[in-house]
Design a protein around this nucleic acid. Sequence first.
DNA 1: TTAGGGTTAG
Length: 788
Amino acid sequence: MIYRDVCSLGAPGSRNLFLSIVNNASALSQLIQTHAQIIVNGLQYDLATVTKLTQKLFDFRAIQQARHLFFTIPSPDIFLFNVLIRGFSSNASPLSSISLYADMRRNTHLRPDNFTYSFALMAASGFPDEKYGMLLHAQSIVDGSGFELFVGSAVVDLYFKFSLVELARKVFDRMPERDTVLWNTMITGLVRNCCYGDSIEVFRDMVAERVQLDSTTVATLLPAVAEMPELKVGMGIQGLGLKLGFHYDPYVMTGLISLYSKCGQINTARSLFRQINKPDLIAYNAMISGFTCNRETESAVRLFREILASGERVGSSTIVGLIPVSSPYGHLHLTCSFQGFCIKSGIIPNPSVSTALMTVYNRLNEVDLARQLFDESPEKTLAAWNAMISGYTHNGLTDKAISLFQEMMTEFTPNPVTITTILSACAQLGALSFGKWVHDLVKSKNLELNIYVSTALIDMYAKCGNILEARQLFDSMIEKNTVTWNAMISGYGLHGYGHEALKLFHEMLHLGFHPTGVTFLSILYACSHAGLVREGDEIFHTMVNNYRIEPITEHYACMVDILGRAGKLEEALEFIRRMPVEPGPAVWGTLLGACVIHKNMNIADMASKKLFEMDSESVGYYVLLSNMYSVDRNFPKAALIREVVKKRKLAKTPGCTLIEVNGTPHVFVSGDRSHSHTTAIYAMLEKLTGKMRELGYHSETVTSLHDVEEEEKELMVNVHSEKLAIAFGLIATEPNTEIRIIKNLRVCLDCHTATKFISKITERVIIVRDANRFHHFKDGVCSCGDYW
DNA sequence: TTAGGGTTAG
């Protein structure tokens, strides 16, 4: 009785006192002391005091103390429950949070309110799947709070966290009332799920409905805008931000710096950075990364030194944003010194940093250095594996890329980046079975099929010979970008389907896609392989005059190829003379190739002279020339060229051909006798040669040439690898099926002629991918029109 | 609000 009196008398005054002490507590120890005094003053069951105390305990991450305190309260109210549910959830204990919520529903008569639901929903997003979240959403609707602003926002946020974009949108659309936070949640969710276009549309709706914008709205949208090609949108948002006075918000400023940097407007970014009074580390990071991606090496390094000099500790983000400045050739020393800095300052075990360094090493063709870093990384993230696999792929080490991929599969499920990279390796290698296996993997595991993956699939199918499958995939894609179109156009070019390529090119322009230098290269290449001289010429002029794209060496070489192949050698020469830049080995080499086809010794002489002057490393040109002189019976000159090759220590790439039978690859080299079916293969070849001769085939070998060195003669007498592969294909596959082979060099004249005969005799379609393009042999005719 | 791994040509 006396006790109760003390409580009721003293409570109001001392409660306010304690509330204010708890509120202002700056250390956990102080809080615990105050708790003791609360007990002494008999306020230990006072819900208002206890609730505040619990909340504060969570602020200090004293989760166990908070839990204990809660269990001393005989009948907690909904406020106290809410504080606990939120406290657990924001301290990475979503399970405690949800079980407390469940406990409350089961064992008390308390009614969850808006707060309960929004906190519990926040906790539910920490679970591995959306099960609990959906349950809570359903309960909140039954309870009648599902359409309240706070609850609705939490539900929308939850669905976005599980990438259930459509569900989130449905909830958003059905909300009777929407405030700034709800709109922001919607926009943020869309941006986080990479639906950039949609996020901007929602933003436009928000403006149209005259909803109050805040700096979060603007800051959230900026990264979305950075992903969009049209900067205009960004300008609009910045304008809006300025008008509303948000440009002083550090989030907005940093976002703008990043945006302008990504759009190549580095000077605007720089001036925004200068306007910041005291930039924080994050603003510095954004600016450094901006300089880096705009190749302003010196500015980036200078700013980095500025941070170091100021005594600020640089973070991994800083260095990750800086590392790519060292990727241009000749900057290897810079990469190494960054690595040294990271080791010294203890940043290096950070996986992002290692991955960034690996990427640069790979770009500089220093695959071994990258691999060393990879092997030494204590924590190998999926990104690190991807970086290494992509490094191998870009450096042509496709077999290593594939075996590393297989090793990775034992630890990780591949993501879209992995799939894209490995498909690129398959395309390079011509590994159709493996490529199909990867495609099946995507389908069976329901892996995300984004624009990169789809484009890589198109490229893989096209390069592995299945152009129809490539086109089907292309047609089924809802969202395409320029790269997608480029891949399909170049696929057609590779197969010699010039008209299809042109049709696609015009369709692409009609739909409003902006062609790039690569687009023009692909279409010119397609024209050259289909003998479309007039079309090629027109396109080249369109590129220069209408699209103002400055041609690079490859464009010029393509034009020389178009003219040269068509026998317009004088015109090709004239074109070279009029080139505004110095023609390189690629241009002269292309002209030489055309001379060989059309047997023009004069121009060939001239082109080869130029090639020799340039000291080209490409042995192919020399082989071309030597063969041409041999055919022309100019043996001294042929010998001279072989001498040069020897002197310059240029190694010929040995030719080899791959054929897949039932998913197993078989590789043949010239004169190969190592295959288990050798006897049958040679017997088949002999039988075929007999039939071919009856039909008028005579080999174009150089066996009769007396001025050829013994070693080389043997190589010439030997059966080329593609013939062996075809013979094996005929033995090992069912009649009437297609035979697909891949050769690493250009197919020679003799093999080309022979394959035409074989396709007629055996009534088989034979598809040959050589170093340049595809040849579809059918009924004695080749799709290249003997023009390759 | 900043940062790491991906597709097309040659």
